[in-house]
Design a binder for these strands. Structure first.
Lengths: 222, 222
DNA sequence: CCATGTGAAAGCGTTCACAGCG
DNA sequence: CGCTGTGAACGCTTTCACATGG
């Protein structure tokens, strides 16, 4: 049987993890597809644009409810709204950036976050030379101010771009200050308590995985 | 039955995809564990350091062969060598960086790649103001030179940090010039032919996934 | 005796075929 | 008639229990 009807502690329907990973792709595909009011898209076309196959799209969307019309397809605008609502994108998020090194600066300047409702509003670093400067629009604070600023600004998400050896301590302080979702770029394993969401972006690992498939002569998982 | 004994076109044993994704974690955990010659590590400890569980470690390592000693554990140095060999890390790779914007510059300056044998040796951009400069040590070429430089330097991997709308064309040209492994940071779906490895790092999607689990009140997949 | 190595079972995720409905 | 929605089959991944061997 397919994985589905798990209830979250909050009592809401919980989607299969694999489906959640694909919803952002559908959202982007739908944005690219434009959306004159009333325009529709078939699972076939949405699949092509998102880089998956059509039955997968239909299965995923069926978990959200029945928002398609048989014989026609899915209303683009409606579907976008439903997916966005499922992902919790009908609100804005405040994001902290910890570690104002190369990668941190790049992320602070990245437009794609703000456009999607994720606003980086504060950066932190230990380097006194960086404190007081701005990354794009984002002020850089001393890391000692982390707790205060996160609480005052009600920041709930964070990007970790510190060196690996300080990442866990930073995470503990962020969580303590009220952050509940973290994206870790530091090359180390981090631990968080229950109720805290953590994902990892591991650049060196990605290249090593590519190395495997390149030497093995096979294609990796999408 | 467990997934295993697929043969690649090259005739080599192909590991389960999920195992391949974890091998870099083990490698890093083993590096952190130090390695006085002869030192060993149990699946239990390796699991803790890599953020997975012990049976998983044993199952994964069993695909590589029997490199542990019952009652003792795994020899750290030996295991590191075997994992590295499986991943194809017993050689150096030349990497191109296409798109010298914020993210491209950050990646060009990132030490972690070179330390692991992935050498970014050329960057490309359309912006005439950037051409001729250097990102860290890496010279920036005009994108029209892409084919020539990739061939001359025998570059086989590439990091795509261009705007989404030019990414597919860039990829086509890279592949045509001999690149066989690509890491895509552009927020778009890319297509490559058989034998070409492609992986994706999708920052906006990661935040949207976190958004889902934060609003649903559950923890996401590691 | 202790920790690995591994079949077997359970859990997820994807694919398929087709019923259902506009 | 066309495309969605979905139960059922299939395949991959994880977990478990324990036999195995240093």
């Amino acid at each position: 049987m397919a994985a589905r009807p798990v209830l979250s502690p909050a009592g809401r329907q919980l989607l299969p993890r694999a489906t959640v990973r694909r919803l952002p792709l559908y959202l982007r595909a739908l944005a690219d597809a434009g959306g004159a009011p009333g325009a529709t898209i078939s699972s076939e076309e949405l699949a092509a644009r998102a880089g998956v196959n059509a039955p997968q799209v239909r299965k995923d969307l069926s978990y959200l409810g029945s928002y398609g019309t048989r014989g026609i397809g899915y209303d683009i605008v409606t579907l976008r709204e439903h997916i966005g609502a499922q992902l919790g994108l009908n609100r804005e998020y405040k994001v902290a950036l910890v570690g104002a090194g190369n990668l941190g600066q790049a992320l602070g300047n990245y437009r794609g976050f703000g456009e999607r409702g994720f606003h980086v509003v504060a950066a932190f670093d230990i380097d006194a030379a960086k404190v007081g400067l701005r990354i794009g629009n984002v002020p850089v604070f001393d890391v000692s101010e982390l707790g205060r600023v996160v609480k005052e600004q009600h920041i709930t998400m964070a990007l970790i771009t510190t060196p690996a050896h300080v990442a866990q301590e930073v995470v503990d302080r962020l969580v303590e200050a009220g952050v509940t979702a973290l994206l870790n770029f530091a090359p180390t394993v981090l631990r968080v308590g229950p109720g805290i969401s953590l994902r990892r972006v591991d650049l060196a690992s990605e290249l090593q995985i590519l190395s495997y498939y390149q030497s093995a002569g096979e294609a990796p998982a999408g």
